[in-house]
Design a protein around this nucleic acid. Sequence first.
DNA 1: AACCTTGACAACCGCGTATGA
DNA 2: TTCATACGCGGTTGTCAAGGT
Length: 281
Amino acid sequence: MGRQPCCDKLGVKKGPWTAEEDKKLINFILTNGQCCWRAVPKLAGLRRCGKSCRLRWTNYLRPDLKRGLLTQAEEQLVIDLHARLGNRWSKIAARLPGRTDNEIKNHWNTHIKKKLLKMGIDPVTHVPLNKKESSSPEDQKNLQQQEPKEGNNGDLNSEENNSNSSSPTENSSSGEESLLLDSICSDDSLMMDNLWMDHENTLVDALLWDTTPKVEGTNTNTNNVDMGLTVPSWEDNNNYAWLLDFEDIGVHDFGFNYCFNEIDHSNAMQTIGSERKGSLA
DNA sequence: AACCTTGACAACCGCGTATGA
DNA sequence: TTCATACGCGGTTGTCAAGGT
């Protein structure tokens, strides 16, 4: 028996989202919270697949998203994490507050990959290219066994397992993490060694650790801890007063303030769009 | 000015996995 | 334990703007 399609193909709109659709989706999630994506399109009055709604929300409309290009520090962190985790973009994104897996993946493919190649580093294995070329086929074979297969080695598995019991941010400060780091950075196979160490005390403190602005008197939702932002549950806050907390951490920087001003949504959406374009320019 | 190419990003697709009946 | 369903992830494709010819 085949898998059911995630939505009825007939009458489902595809392609770029319009401001009107964005408005509907935002309004719906502000009112009802994130739940049961399959039901969202119908309830929100959208002719879209639930999957598409989820993607639009998580990659574009979510209030805690940063806008614009990755900073140099973020980029370096992505490189370091990719060396450890491989193409597990969601795990990498979980370490970069306000960034999505899609965004990081795109940035990797369009910018970082090329940069690494220019530097003479294989973007897949993070091994200097000249070293790979000079080695014998047997060496290469051994190397592949030692290198994480797309970032998958034993240590990484252990990290993955740990992630079930505690958040990655918690893991990051453990001794295990240090051991993992040591084992990964043990030889010249990773030029990232120095790069990582350079950032260990800065980036890691700033990004891996939970730097959540604690909000008194609100529930917190651990689902969002990975984002580095402890955002109260949508469901638990019918009045969404917690949204105001974003003002303290710069929500206006990415235009979400428009969404709950309730003044002119269509204008707001256009403004968000143009702001985004501006920030990318 | 028109067409072509390239780069960047948004969105889609299909598969694996988690979850609940 | 099995099966159906929904969700999440990663790879791929589509779209559009900018630059080049």
